[in-house]
């Protein structure tokens, strides 16, 4: 059982010659054995955060701790070993498997990265891994192109599990799959978590999927976590207006058209360089809806001090428990700032 801690992590890119803060001082804890979900629109920085945690993109600041051990304080070889405990499963299983390697070769290579084994032992491990993700052992001889999307994603998960990680990061792993297959992958993830005691960071743009698999959920907007809370409390009583908009946008069977808060799509607006709250130009309860709320455009809202587990970075956040459903039309209550 291992916990993952991300503290003040920042990632910067150069976009069109200008610096872009894709991940802006994000702090997040995945407690040992639990599933933390991360939702947000495209460009919110959730995938970049995942890549920074596993070391695929360099972090510009902050630190990553695995079980309270700071990666930055380790020697290169220690870090390599520690990083192996955190594995990433990618969105598109057809792109994340080498088309020229059989399933068996892919898995055997991953097993070999973890421990030196003879050929026979390695083949046994490959069979075990295929069993673990409920794939037929005979598929070891197949190439990725011969498998269905769901089977490929199972192979990708098996490869990640080959090095016996304690933390799994799943980046949109069901987005490229058909509905009938996606459910089975989510079930597999639940089983693996239980049987292997994995800690999981589950990233998706689909709030319903995130809610289903996660214990706690973080909502990202423009490189920041703007709300964090337990899955039930975040879905039932969202505090941040952006979370409320996201919840309203989830399509539901049998609901038909309904009144919902809608937000304008961000035009070529550079949200990352805004002053004040980055959401304020689109906020349905912000300064464009209520002119008296000028501080949204000038003052950057911070997350509340972690006195309780449900946090929101909004000057006018609705305190948890004041509303009981997502369709409530009662206006958010003005909360006195903590500073």
């Amino acid at each position: 059982m291992t916990a993952l801690d991300v503290e003040d992590l920042s990632v910067r890119f150069q976009a069109n010659g200008r610096p872009l803060v894709a991940v802006d001082r994000v702090s997040l804890r995945v407690p040992s054995g639990s599933v933390v979900g991360l939702v947000g629109e495209s460009g919110s920085g959730k995938s970049t955060l995942a890549r920074a945690v596993v070391g695929l993109v360099p972090a510009a600041g902050g630190r990553v701790r695995i079980d309270d051990a700071d990666l930055a304080a380790m020697s290169a070889s220690e870090r390599r070993r520690a990083r192996r405990q955190v594995q990433l499963v990618f969105q598109d299983p057809s792109g994340s498997l080498n088309p020229r390697m059989t399933v068996g070769a892919t898995l055997a290579e991953a097993v070999g990265a973890h421990e030196r084994l003879g050929r026979g032992e390695r083949n046994d491990k490959v069979s075990e891994l295929l069993d673990l993700v409920s794939l037929d052992r005979r598929l070891a001889a197949s190439y990725p192109r011969e498998l269905s999307g769901g089977q490929r994603q199972r192979v990708a998960i098996a490869r990640a599990l080959a090095v016996r990680p304690s933390i799994l990061i799943c980046d949109e792993i069901t987005s490229a799959l058909d509905a009938s297959v996606a459910g089975a992958i989510l079930n597999l993830l639940r089983d693996l978590r239980r049987t292997l005691g994995l800690s999981i960071l589950f990233i998706s743009h689909n709030l319903a999927v995130v809610r289903y698999v996660s214990d706690e959920i973080g909502v990202m907007y423009a490189g920041r976590v703007v709300e964090f809370g337990s899955a039930e409390s975040l879905v039932r009583s969202p505090e941040h207006p952006y979370t409320q908009v996201l919840l309203d946008a989830v399509p539901r069977v049998g609901r038909g058209d309904h009144e919902s808060r809608e937000i304008d799509e961000q035009e070529s607006l550079d949200v990352h360089s805004l002053t004040g709250c980055r959401f304020h130009p689109r906020c349905p309860v912000g300064p464009f809806a209520d002119p008296s709320r000028t501080r949204c455009a000038s003052e950057d809202p911070q997350m509340e001090a972690p006195s309780h587990r449900h946090l929101a970075a909004c000057h006018y956040a609705r305190p948890a428990g004041s509303g009981t459903d997502t369709n409530s039309s009662s206006p958010p209550v003005d909360r006195t700032p903590s500073r």
Binding site: S148, G150, Q151, D178, A179, S180, V181, A182, G183, A184, L186, N187, R190, L207, A208, V209, R211, Y212, V213, A231, V235, L247, V250, R252, V253, T326
Partner: peptide, 25 residues
């Protein structure tokens, strides 16, 4: 029916596994 049950929504019981459709099309 299986399609409906395979996709979680905001009210899906989190303690129960999703209905999955075995095999592939």
């Amino acid at each position: 029916r299986a399609l409906l049950a395979a996709v979680p929504d905001l009210e899906t019981d989190r303690t129960v596994a999703l209905t999955s459709i075995p095999g592939r099309p």
